[in-house]
């Protein structure tokens, strides 16, 4: 099963690399065009010379194969935008994004599940949890981020408004922004799964045997409710990465989302390509991991 999925990921990656390359290649305006527009002293000869130097005078398809060969030989090229080897840029950015995503996902899952379980166990709390979940999934992420900055960084001055300095303090607002948007799904799934589990016949029999309510809830019902939550983690991996783009742009945090946005807007195709591919692969591996966890936990899927 794992081998088949890995093969599938590999095939998808190759297909994506081709699609990305073509899409980026078809975007209007190459880097030399931009340089000429920005610098009146560049002449027609300069343009031709620079274009040849950057290999931009070759047809798109042969550029793809040259690029693919270079990547496979471990040399994914040079970032025009940051004047550094692409590989050297992606490492730190990926680490930074994974940190952000890890904390945000952790908080969203724990808090969301807790709220969901609360709603299932205490029906009186259910409407409040439902409203919160509805709110969480309806607020545009960047708007929430701005509001958090205004309140916590500017008015109260408790937290940095962005940037990478300040260690964990700089992480709080971006993590909160991202976690809130993703909390809703976990709360809803946990609530319905937990409510469903509590009505299972064997829970009723456990209750009849005189097991305490809390033992029933945590030892019997909760493990069943956890399965859909884990499924959701796998399905949400892509959405999380999307949220990271917005969060990183807003909080000026280094990371893959910002790297991709800058690279595409700044016409840095080497960087954009590799960063997109790395993000896609990591996301696919993330959903694979979630699937495996789900299989391990859920006896029904084997």
């Amino acid at each position: 099963m794992i081998a088949a999925r890995l093969a599938q990921i590999a095939i998808t990656t190759v297909a994506l690399s081709f699609i990305f390359f073509m899409l980026i290649g078809l975007m209007p305006g190459d880097p030399i065009d931009l340089a000429i527009a920005g610098d009146p002293r560049l002449t027609a000869e300069d343009a031709a010379r620079l274009r040849a130097l950057h290999g931009l005078d070759q047809p798109l398809l042969s550029r793809y194969f040259a690029w693919a060969a270079a990547v496979l030989s471990g040399n994914p090229g040079f970032s025009r935008l940051f004047a550094q080897p692409v590989a050297a840029l992606i490492g730190p950015a990926l680490l930074s994004t994974l940190t952000l995503l890890g904390f945000a996902l952790g908080i969203a899952v724990v808090l969301g599940t807790a709220l969901g379980v609360l709603a299932a166990l205490r029906p009186r709390a259910a409407p409040a949890v439902q409203t919160l979940a509805l709110l969480a999934q309806s607020v545009p992420g960047f708007w929430l981020g701005i509001m958090l900055i205004v309140v916590f960084a500017v008015w109260l001055g408790w937290l940095p408004a962005g940037g990478a300095e300040g260690g964990w303090r700089a992480l709080i607002l971006p993590v909160a922004t991202l976690a809130f948007a993703n909390l809703a799904g976990y709360a809803r799934h946990a609530a319905s799964a937990m409510a469903g589990a509590l009505h299972d016949p064997w829970i009723r029999s456990a209750r009849a045997r005189g097991a305490s309510e809390s033992r029933i809830a945590w030892r019997h019902a909760f493990p069943n409710a956890a399965v859909p939550v884990i499924t959701l983690i796998g399905l949400d991996a892509g959405a999380l990465v999307s949220g990271a783009v917005i969060t990183e742009a807003l909080f000026a945090r280094p990371g893959m989302g910002k790297l991709i946005f800058d690279a595409i807007m700044g016409n840095d195709s080497n960087l954009a390509l590799l960063a997109l591919l790395v993000v896609a692969v990591v996301t696919m591996l993330g959903s694979l991991g979630a699937d495996l966890a789900q299989r391990a936990l859920d006896p029904r899927i084997r």
């Binding site: 599938q8 399905l235 892509g238 595409i264 696919m284």
Partner: peptide, 17 residues
């Protein structure tokens, strides 16, 4: 495959087309 892909980075590519 589409579901596992991060949509926004791809939307950025497509929007810049």
């Amino acid at each position: 495959a589409l579901l596992a892909l991060p949509a926004l980075p791809l939307l950025i590519v497509l929007s810049a087309l």
